[in-house]
């Protein structure tokens, strides 16, 4: 139930963000500092989200779990930087995760 309350709020909130200046044309002018700050929202917020999600994969003391995830994420980040292709980033990240995990599995078994 709470989930749907959140989703409806998100739906309305997201629509209002998109609609805001299109709907109010000419009636409101945002302060320069706000317009300037908006430019930094995607880089900041999305990076913060990535960092908080990656923390969930940091398990102190067990390197075999850490390295595949973080190694894959770092290289996938490089792919994102070079290609700017979202799908390729996810694909390379997942393949690397599987490869790293199997390699470490063999090393541990051997």
């Amino acid at each position: 139930m709470t989930t749907w309350v959140i989703m409806i709020a998100l739906g309305i909130g997201t629509f209002l963000i998109r609609y805001s200046m299109i709907g109010l044309t000419g009636k409101v002018n945002l302060p320069k500092v706000v317009v300037r700050a908006i430019r930094f929202i995607p880089a900041s917020m999305l990076s913060a989200v990535v960092a908080s999600q990656m923390l969930a994969y940091a398990r102190p003391g067990s390197f075999t779990l850490d390295i595949p995830y973080f190694g894959a994420a770092i290289i996938a980040g490089g792919v994102a930087w070079k290609t700017r292709n979202a799908f390729l980033t996810v694909l390379v990240g997942m393949i690397l995760l599987w490869v790293f995990r199997n390699v470490l599995g063999w090393l541990a078994a051997g």
Partner: peptide, 19 residues
């Protein structure tokens, strides 16, 4: 398959091009 990892990768893919 650890597909939960597609979530941080998705956000990584969205974040990086903004730099």
């Amino acid at each position: 398959w650890s597909l939960d990892f597609t979530i941080p990768l998705t956000f990584l893919a969205l974040a990086v091009p903004n730099i």
